[in-house]
Design a protein around this nucleic acid. Structure first.
Lengths: 188, 188
DNA sequence: GTCTATACGAAGATAGAC
DNA sequence: GTCTATCTTCGTATAGAC
């Protein structure tokens, strides 16, 4: 089926970005991880590495977005736990060796177009998470502000968890976030 | 004076880590930025690049630590603003092209020793910021938990600010953090 | 302390055969 | 679609002169 090899490469790129960042996500490592053939790199990605990374950033963004959409209908504090749980799962599954691919691209890619793409992903997360909070009964402006804080603090906590090889940062942050959200949410 | 060239290289490494991450912080770029002579790299850093980066991580950590110590005596909400202000200054001065060197090493260095070093830095920040909050009247356990959340969310917000080229994430997060801290602090 | 020269590997990318 | 071969550039690191 057409499109299988490139898809596998993009998925591997997401994994490698989350683990080692932009420069360390090389064609060699992507091929090794995905099992894709070396000869067709520039057939599938004529613009080279930047094109592959751009696709990987989009995939990482879409995955989180799809996950966020599954929060619809949850009470506000459970939305917080679900989002934190996404990062907890990434950390545990990787034994604290992986984090957020979009964050990694933001801080280690020098290509402006990729950073812009990362910004668009963060914005899309903000909007959808804000919607989920709004549907949980939080007023619109507060919901958008809270969504931003939830994303920023979970991203930061995930980095601290990786460094310290512990879930404590994410757990502590999530507890504070629940308090923040509960203060704006209607009583359940 | 002995030690000037290596110091300049370490300072440049901090800057380059904050801007481009671990792999992109090469000897070439460090020499170019610092003006240090190429011939003495391995005289000053016999263990090579990892030794330089380790020194840079320590310097970045110590700088933030010294800054955090200047918070002693401030009311709790002002401690939040001061810490957020540190990152705001980094973003503005670099026109949104730099962030935290310690975070960059955590997510883009594959050398375990360097990640451990980054973890130690984060821990030292947690302790000192916790002390500052405790001196502002917050109960010990709460102060330590709040310090962790402040660090994690400012780190994450700084990444979002870089991506979006805007201070909004940091401003929104700081406002939420002030609320969180005020709820635990004695009335001023 | 600083230099040049050099070794070695790995990166991204291109050309052309199959 | 996939291969091999090759080019160029750049990275870390070492050796030895000054």
């Amino acid at each position: 089926m057409t499109g299988e090899a490139p898809e596998a490469m993009i998925a591997s790129a997401v994994k490698l970005l989350a683990k080692h960042g932009f420069q360390a996500t090389t064609f060699s490592s992507v091929l090794k991880d995905s099992g894709a053939p070396r000869g067709s790199i520039y057939y599938h990605f004529p613009e080279g590495k930047d094109q592959l990374i751009a696709a990987a950033v989009d995939l990482a963004g879409d995955r989180a977005l799809a996950f966020t959409d599954s929060f619809r209908g949850l009470p506000a504090t459970e939305v917080v736990d679900a989002f934190a749980g996404l990062w907890r799962a990434v950390l545990v599954r990787s034994e604290f060796s992986a984090g957020c691919a979009v964050l990694a691209v933001t801080v280690s890619a020098d290509v402006p177009g990729l950073v812009d793409r990362a910004a668009a992903i963060f914005m899309s997360w903000r909007e959808r998470l804000g919607q989920a909070l709004e549907e949980a009964g939080i007023e619109a402006a507060s919901a958008r502000a809270l969504a931003l804080t939830i994303i920023a603090s979970c991203e930061g906590a995930t980095v601290l968890c990786r460094a310290e090889r512990s879930l404590e940062p994410l757990d502590v942050v999530a507890a504070h976030l629940r308090g923040l959200v509960a203060a704006s949410a209607p009583p359940s």
